[in-house]
Design a protein around this nucleic acid. Structure first.
Lengths: 106, 106
DNA sequence: TATATTTGAAACCGATTGGTTTCCTAATCT
DNA sequence: AGATTAGGAAACCAATCGGTTTCAAATATA
């Protein structure tokens, strides 16, 4: 089963888990307390996040701490780069239009 | 049926469509030529992209030109903002570690 | 007017999703 | 040792997904 990061962030629950883990590492039970679902459902989400390496596990006794692999989030940012240039250009064009209007108003 | 942008970009075909439309507006038939699927499948993808306002239609005779709503892409960028601060901080920390090592090496 | 082209919509299909319930293993605590 | 706790795995379920085939409507062309 091929997992990728885009599929991982498609689910709203997983996006919240990612945001939670951005602050601090947490165990599945602690994470589950923040949601209205069973621990097992959260466990499945964590599995998906782990499979696409967005999250890593640290074993500590019988507890497992999950933490965010923040570097992986940059993959999305990199994908956005191809559009960033376009939307910045559009902004510049808008700036030009606005300054042209200003000149005409004078 | 609640569509959101994260679900929209989860599919690889849709991500390519988005990238194509970033360059220029295209009709469904033209878009479909770039893929190994039927036009109808592309049509369904375009529907999903339209529903979450990532793409807009311009009618021209019997043809429909689809173009990217680049502003909508910023929503993803905004969501990433909450992590950007973290990964930049980590980078700074790494810089500090590296400069400390340098000093020790001297 | 008859025909061809462009497109969306609906019906259908197998695979996947997100969830639950049930069960198992491994640590920890008394 | 026995009970409790943390957590994963499997079986199952309804809903959704991405695809195809078939059809209908509107525009363009002969």
């Amino acid at each position: 089963m091929r997992r990728d990061i885009y599929q991982a962030i498609a689910d709203p629950t997983r996006r919240v888990i990612i945001a939670l883990l951005a602050f601090q590492a947490m165990t599945p039970n602690t994470i589950a307390e923040n949601f209205n679902t069973t621990r097992q459902a959260i466990s499945k989400h964590l599995r998906i996040l782990t499979e696409c390496e967005l999250v890593k596990q640290t074993y500590q006794g019988r507890e497992i701490y999950y933490s965010l692999e923040i570097e992986k989030m940059k993959e999305i940012d990199n994908w956005l780069n191809q559009f960033r240039e376009i939307w910045e250009t559009r902004f510049n064009q808008l700036d030009e239009v606005l300054s042209t209007i200003k000149k005409q108003t004078k």
